[in-house]
Design a protein around this nucleic acid. Sequence first.
DNA 1: GAGTGGTCTAGACCACCAT
DNA 2: TGGTGGTCTAGACCACTCA
Lengths: 228, 228
Amino acid sequence: MTSEKKMKENDWRETDMLPSENELSIMYGTSRETIRKALNLLSQNGYIQKVRGKGSIILAMDKFSFPVSGIASFKELTKMLDMQSRTYVQELSLAKADEAMRKILDPAEEELVWKVVRVRELDGEKVILDKDYFKQGIVNSLTKDICEDSIYAYLEQELHLDISYANKEITVESPTEEDMELMDMTGFSNVVVIKSIVHLNNTEVFQYTESRHRPDKFRFVDFARRHG
Amino acid sequence: MTSEKKMKENDWRETDMLPSENELSIMYGTSRETIRKALNLLSQNGYIQKVRGKGSIILAMDKFSFPVSGIASFKELTKMLDMQSRTYVQELSLAKADEAMRKILDPAEEELVWKVVRVRELDGEKVILDKDYFKQGIVNSLTKDICEDSIYAYLEQELHLDISYANKEITVESPTEEDMELMDMTGFSNVVVIKSIVHLNNTEVFQYTESRHRPDKFRFVDFARRHG
DNA sequence: GAGTGGTCTAGACCACCAT
DNA sequence: TGGTGGTCTAGACCACTCA
């Protein structure tokens, strides 16, 4: 376990100021540079704010806000929000990549691509349509049970895939016929579309995802800091 | 100038692999830890991908993608995208904060709040409505000329404000009467609303902004890495 | 002036990747 | 096995804040 992780475990929320970096390095029996790396992580994740000459301020956290910006799975999110949810697997197929998918996933010659279409029900309403595409060279087998549970848990815990980062794009579009068919769209004339290209640790693209949300159920929150 | 900045200036785009950290530390005559801090910045900003045991991979950048995630001003964005743009100052007033603004900005007793409403025209269409609120204790004076040019350039270069970070929320809402009045909304039944609370370096809130976009002109791109 | 965070150093050990 | 990035150290100097 790294020192960064050790730091995170402790709770200083009672006060509004962290001990100084020198004090912390003594308290944790580690060097100041190591403490600084840990504090920078906390700062980047929006927990503290460092001010030169003064110290590190603990930021008030809204417990009901959560970062959607990271690579979080649907199952985690509903759990966190304590929502009634169900997942319906609409399609699970393995086929040759079409032109668009070939451009994005760049599969090997003769390599097939998984297509998973899932409908998410929140509090009794079908409000999210997830379309995932995986390269078979990386995800060899996939079952309906896995798709109904959590694909990401399977990829990370069973296949031990080293998932690295995603390029994301959020836009607002008109609903397609598929959207209107599979989601409860009466009274809504737009969908929010989140397109992600997910990379492995070696930068190889292995997944493309299109998550289509009914606009009233969409919310994007960003608390992350950009600079130290 | 810090070493991090020195590093960024150089262009290694021709190849697809960076020299090793040891080589770089010799080339730049600096320590490996310093090189590592610079590379971590590049990694967090999506320019490179570090792989243990191998090296640092230079990621292909789409020149037409740009991060909206940071605190970027409208003027910078239109310049970057080379778009025809105009800004109309619809309202510039100084008044007591109402209930909602008091909760967000937490002004001092008797402190007034600037309200700026601006309409953004892109390629001849009014598609963005920006509503900004500033505490007068921090922004003493504000003119129509400043609002038509760039408020942020004024705040940073003239007032030397130390702007730190913003909490952002993106949702999709129904247009208000004001939206329909001030923007070209015919044929559109939603607006994308980006709400930001902007903090100074000492964590004090000094600005609240609501940026309301016609959905066809909204696009949010995120290339930033979450972990090293 | 004492204390704070910001930056940098020269060296060390480790886990991982390639050959 | 040699090279790579990941982590950590003990010390240094600086810019800034506050009493």
